[in-house]
Design a binder for these strands. Structure first.
Lengths: 343, 343
DNA sequence: TTTATTTATGCAAACATTTGCATAAATAAA
DNA sequence: TTTATTTATGCAAATGTTTGCATAAATAAA
């Protein structure tokens, strides 16, 4: 069966039916000011009557503008990213934009390939969380050079001057640590993330800064790195902490999986929160499903997505805004106190 | 600053530089057979040299074809959907398609709006998981009428004849229940999902079928409905079960959150798995993080996404395939036995 | 050789919309 | 009234690619 494609109603059909020019119709549709109320109504009514809708492709073709935002992240099925994307979609849709999603799989080559493709595609803009392998930003610089609005989220990109939306990881981690201190902890351990990654470095820094500020000693043997922050790593490292000779009465974890693991392991030998307080990071679903329920930092991923989209669309629509070179937004996180750290 | 738009290299530039016709260049680019090896090479080299890439918008405009697949789901940040989407993206990207994502928020009006928009957008195809509120499928029928390939995933759509990819929920639930029976359970409870939703109905049915087949009595008082399958509902219903007078030695749960809740609640009064065996559904991350670790059914969400994309692209590219009206694919699930049901 | 067939290339139209420029109509100023 | 200004509309070009049809060149058949 051939696609007979019940021939779409075009702007031309409207014009003919109304005996006005094509340009007039086009102008009504794009809210051009130099149109009388009378014809505006006339056209709009006809548009409805004939069930016309503008052909976005033809429009983009002529105007060289798209309503499509490219979004690149390492993986969609990571809790954090899916929330960010959800936020992006919500805001973008509301503003009349669509989002086209790509996964880099943390693969630098693929990321470059995707970005280049997006560039050649007339995307209205690009929102990206660079992959773990990404150390050079030439691909993103090219995007900027091509005058495509760009927003980077979550991962810091040293040396690349562009719009960024990030969690204030340092401050959040500081807050978490401070919370344990104020709850009475004197010797606090830290299960950190991959120290090659800026946000996990920042979390470690925030932890240290809090200890310093409250005159607690920083003990390297209480700092354990979990490259992937997996539950299993958490189990192992918690075990290491138990077997170490330095005692501790609190643990700040760089995510909730490791924190959950720490709770599981340690509640067999210590009372939580009476003798040991634990706090996680990210507010994953699991944090309310374990016992005791896990205190954590809400990473506002959804909100972050909204802000990223807002920042980008602002750029897209207000091109003259590039009087300012770029802006960096730090998203506030929220300390959520549950049982695992109460006193 | 005006967007000076460093004027893209076009097919025309290539043609001029090589003194061949535009059509020749176009044909090389689309692998038309009637092109000599010599010119093919000539053109391809020049294309590389000048850094040309085809303008997808112009191409779509002329050919009335897009490489963009619309994907509609209730929410992106639900574990299941983010996995499905991840699978879709992976397969689609590999095949040269992009995916454009929308969230219906389980809102019927919004879903219709989105679908209509996708229709007017020349999308190559549409993959959708209809929202909970969706009972009528006129919007999807319109898509079919417009000859846009369509695949529905996860939710059954009674009365709509179209390509579907679904988990064999009935069989999966049967398998889960059978597993408990074979592990020695004689009286099995069920925490079910919203009985307005086909997949949860199927899970209940599978449970009942297994009981019947093994000559166990179906006791309505052991069947509890958790509308949203939340952790909290799970806690409540587990409590109800305890307080009920009918004893039980197994629970089949319609998801892992309620199963986790059941474990939490019941392990205080019973030994799991010795006296009570529990199995969940979906294989969420949490299932390996609780104690005892939760047996469950892996829902193959990622795989489902891949299959959905494959089915769709097959349709897109092989239009004559619509000799067959539509196909329904049932995805096999996997029983994962962990501690909570071992014997 | 001449004719028929195949192979490779070019011409030009078509696609639906946007937009700069021109012009007609209406209003205001002189 | 005439002239200047503003407001509303129309004309036609331009956008980058694809594709049906025509044609030229090359090869095969007669």
């Amino acid at each position: 069966m051939k696609n007979i494609d019940s021939s779409r109603v075009t702007i031309k059909d409207i014009a003919k039916a109304l005996n006005v020019s094509i340009s007039t119709v086009s102008r009504v549709l794009s809210n051009h000011p130099a149109i009388s109320e009378a014809t505006r109504k006339l056209v709009n009514d006809k548009v409805k009557e004939m069930g016309f809708s503008i052909d976005p492709i033809a429009s983009s073709f002529r105007s060289k503008k798209t309503k499509s935002i490219g979004v690149v992240c390492p993986r969609i099925d990571i809790d954090f990213h899916s929330k960010v994307i959800s936020g992006i979609e919500e805001y973008a849709y509301q503003q009349g934009y669509q989002i086209t999603i790509f996964q880099s799989q943390d693969n630098y080559q693929k990321e470059k390939e995707i970005v280049q493709m997006i560039e050649s595609t007339l995307a209205a803009g690009l929102i990206i969380c660079p992959g773990l392998e990404t150390r050079k930003y030439d691909h993103l610089k090219k995007i900027k050079k091509a005058n495509i609005p760009l927003v980077v989220y979550d991962r810091s990109t040293d040396g690349l001057k562009t719009n960024k939306v990030m969690i204030n990881d340092l401050e959040a981690s500081f807050k978490a640590t401070e919370h344990l201190i104020k709850a009475g902890c004197k010797s606090i351990a830290h299960i950190s993330g991959d120290q090659e990654v800026s946000i996990f470095k920042a979390r470690l820094l925030g932890y240290k800064k809090a200890l310093e500020q409250y005159n607690l000693e920083i003990r390297e043997e209480l700092i354990k790195e979990a490259k992937h922050l997996s539950h299993q790593e958490g189990l192992n490292l918690a075990q290491e902490l138990i077997q170490g000779k330095t005692s501790f009465d609190g643990i700040v974890c760089a995510n909730d999986y490791t924190a959950a693991a720490a709770i599981q392991t340690l509640k067999k030998v210590r009372r939580i929160p009476e003798d040991l307080k634990i706090i996680g990071f990210s507010n994953y679903p699991i944090s309310t499903m374990i016992e005791p329920q896990l205190s954590t930092i809400d990473d506002s991923a959804y909100h972050m997505g909204k802000v990223a989209a807002k920042l980008l669309i602002q750029q897209i629509e207000d091109r003259d805004l590039d009087l300012l070179d770029y802006q960096e937004v730090l998203i506030k996180t929220e300390l959520i106190v549950r049982e695992s750290s109460s006193h």
